[in-house]
């Protein structure tokens, strides 16, 4: 069966309520990022941040297939992964603002959110930097005899990093329960990936004899059912997988990347935003299928927005770390 034929039959078997939940998860990420951008534009957030808007279906779809005790590692564009794995909006915003209440006591910031309670081993600002960590977590799960699975999220830019290939080789050789999720949003910063990447993406994993899949990363249904399949295999001891999700970021590389026409056209951006918005795609499908209606979706939006606003308020009012935090936690 092809990936999509397989998906179609699996989509039908998913509990309808689950789609509504996925919609809410994606919306949470979307609203979070909109607020984060606002915080940057109004000069309330220190530094820069990389928004995940447009790519929500991947984090939401993959994390929906995971248990709370499964592991993830994330990237510089990591808010979506952290939220989808169960992070709270208020503690996330507090971290973005460098406040003590944040997930990392304000010491990590946007690019380094880690949350042990939800299995999040940390976002990483070194491209490809978490490939070893995720693979090691999977190795550890195997050694400890748990049936946990690890997911390594990374952008297609990380395909340039040698570390990734070293650990993929070992993961395949030793059948580690790890899923490498490659989010191909077409750009490594300001350079189209075809200018930096030879061959095809999935062939890299084929070289290691690894299970692979490639999905439309804007369609959360496809992401979710494919992730389910790969996670189940890994959990059953059948080894790692490599999942390519084709996607697009709606904003710039980071919030300060405003004039983008020298590397991607307005038309291209418009096309993805108007025709390939993962939230719109799911909402329209759910309504067509009679899974839900606008009233329900509107209510979800009201709730999520209210939660996000309260979370921002909380973060803005939260205190900065006390100064003696600066040399705490250097050693355990």
């Amino acid at each position: 069966m092809t990936e999509s034929a397989q998906s179609t039959s699996q989509i039908a078997s998913v509990d309808r309520e689950q789609w509504v939940h996925l919609y809410e998860q994606m919306l949470k990420i979307r609203v979070f990022e909109t607020q984060a951008n606002q915080l940057y534009l109004s000069a309330k957030m220190p530094g820069l941040t990389h928004l995940y808007s447009g790519e929500e279906a991947i984090a939401a779809g993959v994390c929906e297939a995971l248990r709370i005790d499964d592991y993830i590692t994330s990237t510089h564009r990591g808010h979506g992964h952290c939220l989808a794995k169960g992070a709270r909006l208020d503690l996330m915003f507090a971290e973005l603002l460098g406040k003590e209440a944040g997930y990392c006591r304000g010491k990590g910031g946007s690019m380094h959110i880690a949350d042990q309670d939800t299995g999040n081993l940390g976002a990483n600002a070194i491209v490809g930097g978490s490939a070893g960590i995720a693979t090691g977590a999977a190795m550890s799960a195997k050694m400890r005899g748990t049936d946990q699975v690890a997911v390594c999220f990374f952008g297609e830019g990380a395909l340039g990093q040698g570390l990734l290939y070293e650990v993929m080789n070992m993961a395949s050789l030793w059948k580690f329960p790890v899923i490498y999720v490659c989010e191909n949003n077409l750009y490594n910063e300001y350079t189209h990936y075809t200018e930096t990447t030879a061959g095809t993406l999935v062939d890299r994993a084929h070289a290691f004899g690894m299970e692979t899949a490639e999905v439309n990363g804007q369609d959360v249904r496809e992401v979710y059912v494919t992730a389910m399949r790969l996670v189940e295999r890994a959990r059953a001891g059948e080894g790692p997988a490599f999942l390519v999700c084709n996607t697009y970021r709606f904003f710039g590389h980071h919030v300060g990347d405003i004039n983008r026409e020298y590397y991607r056209s307005k038309e291209e951006e418009e096309l993805w935003k108007t025709e390939r918005d993962p939230l719109t795609l799911l909402a329209e499908w759910m309504q067509a299928e009679g899974i839900t209606d606008t009233a329900v979706l509107d209510q979800i939006e009201v709730n999520v927005k209210a939660e996000a606003e309260a979370a921002v308020e909380f973060a803005l009012n939260a205190p900065y770390p006390s100064l003696d935090e600066v040399d705490r936690h250097v050693y355990a």
């Binding site: 460098g98 380094h112 900065y320 770390p321 600066v326």
Partner: peptide, 11 residues
């Protein structure tokens, strides 16, 4: 200072 550089501006 001999610490990883913290994000929070105050630190």
């Amino acid at each position: 200072m001999d610490v990883p550089i913290p994000f929070s501006p105050v630190l």
